[in-house]
Amino acid sequence: MKQGPEFKRIEDNMRSGQLAAHQFLGTDTRSLKDIIRHDQLVLEPLGITNQDIANRMRYFTEKAAGGLGLQVVDDVFEVEREEHKGDIPCPFADNVQASKSITRVKNLRTGRSVSWSDLNIHLVDEHGFFEGHGAPFRVDPAEFVEVLEIKASK
């Protein structure tokens, strides 16, 4: 997980509202480091890593791509992708750009849904960053594990 000395600057960047209208930290007052650490503590006892979550998100994103509208995946998940023009830069200033397109998944067993943008996959995968509480693009790890039925990888 990349955590350079520039963390403070990155955090300011995220709070500024200059990267995206809905900030990355939401109403969260904890530091960026604390936010990342707490989400990791949620995952550890489940034996699930941030990469496991990113991989599962990527799996559904690929299934939803192609513009066919609502699709059912593995009989359990209803997936849909909203394609948007344009890329958004990663707030960790690592020169990574991700598409603004959004993927939605509904678990037909439970009726619960989650959604994410392509940038979220990169943030979870590379930075272990699920975003702050109250951020509209927050990937709540516990919720994602349940809705996407993510199992421990080992």
């Binding site: 995206a20 209208a21 809905h22 909203e82 603004k100 959004i102 509209p136 693009f137």
Partner: peptide, 12 residues
Amino acid sequence: IRLVPGGICTTF
């Protein structure tokens, strides 16, 4: 202009 969820310019 298509509204992009959480988009700075389109929300504006």
